[in-house]
Structure formats: C-alpha cells, structure tokens
C-alpha cells in the first residue's frame, strides 16, 4: 500500500464514521425533526394544554364552513389522516391553495379531544404538476376528484400529455 492509497482509505473511513455518527443522531431525534403530527397521534396522546402543535392532514370534503365574528372571517373545517378527524377553528385569511381535499398544516392548540384552535394555516401542495385543463378533464371523466385528495399515481401512465 502506497502512502496515497493509505491516505485515501483513512479519509474514506473518517467519512464513514462521521456519517454513521450523524445518522445515529438523526435517528435518535427523528421524532423532533418531523414537522407536524397527524390527527390520530393527537387523539391517541393529546399534548398538554396551551402547547403549540403543528397538525397536518387533508381537509375533509364538505366540512368547510365560513362565518363571521366581528368583521374577521372565521372558518371551521375537519382535518383527517384517513383514520380520525379533528375539527379546526381558524380566524383570519386562508392561503390561496386552501380548498377541500388539500393537505394543510395548522399551527395552534388542542382545546378538547377532537377540537383544535389554529393561529396559522399553511397549505401544502403535492408533487404533481399538470395544466388546469388536464385536471378538469380528469375530473370530468371521473378518474379523479381533487376534493378527495391528491391524484392517484397511475394516472401518469394513462394521461401523459
């Protein structure tokens, strides 16, 4: 083994050790790195009162109700992860992407077992990109309704344009 080969192995071993260490740290803190918790996690183990939590899920179709409380718009909607739903109340302006079937992240506090008061609503958009006409055509043909969640993965094989 020449000096250069030995140096190469030394450097590679150092990177491998360092990588393993970082990997183990990330694994240990994995539950803190997640950006949001799901409705079933909140219902199963409710966080302590007044603690700010980020709740993520899909807005249930037909659950959005608008009302007004002293000039500010108030909206209530259900957020689900497919197993449980939590009713969210929010006062303020919603982001553009907010609609039924959209993934959202609401930041706020849990008030009772299935109730949540949000101080901030963030809309998540998924990784599918398509022109409006394609989305409309898919909806008309009955292959996919955006009110019930993101498009199924197999539409990309049948509907490429």
């Amino acid at each position: 083994m020449t000096r250069k080969t030995r140096r190469l192995w030394l450097v590679l071993i150092c990177i491998a050790c360092f990588g393993t260490a970082i990997g183990l740290i990330l694994r240990a803190f994995s539950s803190d790195i997640v950006f949001f918790v799901t409705p079933s996690q909140i219902v199963a183990s409710p966080p302590p009162d007044h603690r700010l939590v980020k709740l993520g899920g899909m807005v249930v179709a037909g659950s959005v109700h608008y009302s007004k409380h002293k000039e500010t718009p108030v909206v209530t909607f259900d957020v689900t992860d497919g197993r449980t739903a939590v009713t969210v109340t929010y006062q303020g302006i919603l982001p553009d992407l907010f609609r039924e079937g959209q993934s959202v992240i609401v930041i706020g506090t849990v008030t009772s077992k299935h109730r949540f008061t949000a101080s901030e609503v963030l809309a998540k958009h998924d990784e599918t990109y398509m022109p409006k006409e394609v989305a409309d055509a898919l909806r008309k043909s009955g292959k996919w309704d955006p009110r019930f969640g993101p498009p199924p993965p197999d539409i990309w094989h049948s509907n490429q344009n």
């Binding site: 997640v34 950006f35 949001f36 993520g56 998924d126 990784e127 022109p131 993965p153 490429q160 344009n161």
Partner: peptide, 24 residues
Amino acid sequence: DWWNTLHQPDSITLTRAPTISRSM
C-alpha cells in the same frame, strides 16, 4: 421521504415516472 415536511416530495426521481405534465 424520511420525515414529514411542508415541502413536497421530489417530482422527478430515478425510480418512478415524473409526476410533472410533459408541457412543464
């Protein structure tokens, strides 16, 4: 992929068909 994030997953990957319409 490892953690849930506000950022969406990648649209172009090596393992599956891109989830972007060809016009984009």
